[in-house]
Each structure stands twice: as structure tokens, then as C-alpha cells.
């Protein structure tokens, strides 16, 4: 059975350097839909990324900065990108060489369709 997020996940995972993409509930950290390469522990990433995004959103609101549009975690072996709306978070896992600008644009476009 296909999910309403299947097209979005396909579009995001087609971006160069993307190794996986997840739609996660922000409050519970549970996967709603996922498209990741073999070997990626999606439930762990979902739970931790949702917690990270939630903390960032609360920090931003507490600082009077309003909504978090896009959150990027840069690590030695790649990036974790997050964008959320209405209790759902799009999480993208990328390689270091990925073009984050393009991925950011695609994620911000995709997040508009979340709800």
C-alpha cells in the first residue's frame, strides 16, 4: 500500500548525495514513512532527529526567533537535515559531498505539502 508521502520521499532521495529520507512524528519520534539505504538504522535516527528538531524548535521559540524553517547538522561523514510542519518532520541523511543547497530547497518545498 502506498503512502501519501511516497512521491515526496522518492523526489528527495533522488537528490545527489542523499542516502535516506524519513517522515517522522515530532512528538513521538516514530517513523511515518521512510526510504533509506540498507544498513541505516531508521528507527534510531527517527527518534533522535525528532527529539533534536523539537528541542531546536522550542529553543527558537524561547529566543523569540519564531519557527525553525530548516535545521542542518554537519558531521564528519555527512549531514542530517530537518524541516518540519504541523507535528511532522522531514529528515534527510546525506553524504558529505551532497549539495545541501539543492536539498534544502527541495525539503522546504516538500514541507509545504506536509499536514
Amino acid at each position: 500500500m502506498s503512502s501519501p508521502f511516497e512521491g515526496m520521499l522518492e523526489m528527495l532521495t533522488r537528490q545527489r548525495g542523499v542516502v535516506g529520507c524519513l517522515i517522522v512524528g515530532e512528538d513521538d519520534g516514530i517513523i511515518v514513512d521512510v526510504n533509506v539505504q540498507v544498513g541505516i538504522d531508521a528507527p534510531v535516527i527517527a527518534a533522535l532527529a525528532a527529539a533534536l528538531y523539537r528541542r531546536a524548535r522550542l529553543s527558537s521559540e524561547a529566543a523569540g526567533l519564531a519557527t525553525v524553517n530548516f535545521l542542518q547538522l554537519e558531521a564528519e561523514r555527512g549531514h542530517l537535515c530537518m524541516a518540519g510542519r504541523d507535528g511532522l518532520v522531514i529528515v534527510t541523511i546525506t553524504e558529505p559531498k551532497a549539495q545541501i543547497g539543492l536539498i534544502r530547497g527541495a525539503m522546504l518545498q516538500s514541507v509545504e505539502t506536509l499536514a
Binding site: 512528538d27 516514530i30 528507527p43 527518534a47 533522535l48 523539537r54
Partner: peptide, 11 residues
């Protein structure tokens, strides 16, 4: 409570 989540607890 909201300091954690079901996903984190499961992990």
C-alpha cells in the same frame, strides 16, 4: 512526559 518520546524510549 514531553521531555522524552515513545521513539526515544524504544531506542
Amino acid at each position: 512526559d514531553t521531555e522524552s518520546s515513545l521513539g526515544l524510549v524504544q531506542v
